[in-house]
Design a binder for these strands. Sequence first.
DNA 1: TGAGTGACTGTAA
DNA 2: CTTACAGCCACTC
Length: 103
Amino acid sequence: MSFFDRVYKVARQIPTGRVTSYGAIAKAVGSPQSARMVGWAMNASPEDVPAHRVVNRNGLLSGKSHFGDSNAMQNLLEAEGVIVKNNQVQDFEKLFWKPEILS
DNA sequence: TGAGTGACTGTAA
DNA sequence: CTTACAGCCACTC
């Protein structure tokens, strides 16, 4: 199983209406210092991976520009009940979902 | 085989 | 409080 596969496995576990950070996923897959790789994995993520629920540690939609439309990521989040304003998730601390560590 | 790159993060000024 | 900088690891050319 590759690094990417593990990232996808964790990302798919993010509940609807919740968000997490790249660093949190990196930690969950066993490479806490590979947050950048997580982002890269998201760049190549399959459709069944909710990449829009993954933001940076400030709750900022750093990856929105990688979606087709500049509003796509925000629209997806808002459709799930996540309030996004100025490219930033509101109540990020409340909505933050901590992924479980992969064994 | 080696250098470049990136949807990040934590620490320092 | 905001801005800067360096480390990080897996992947591509």
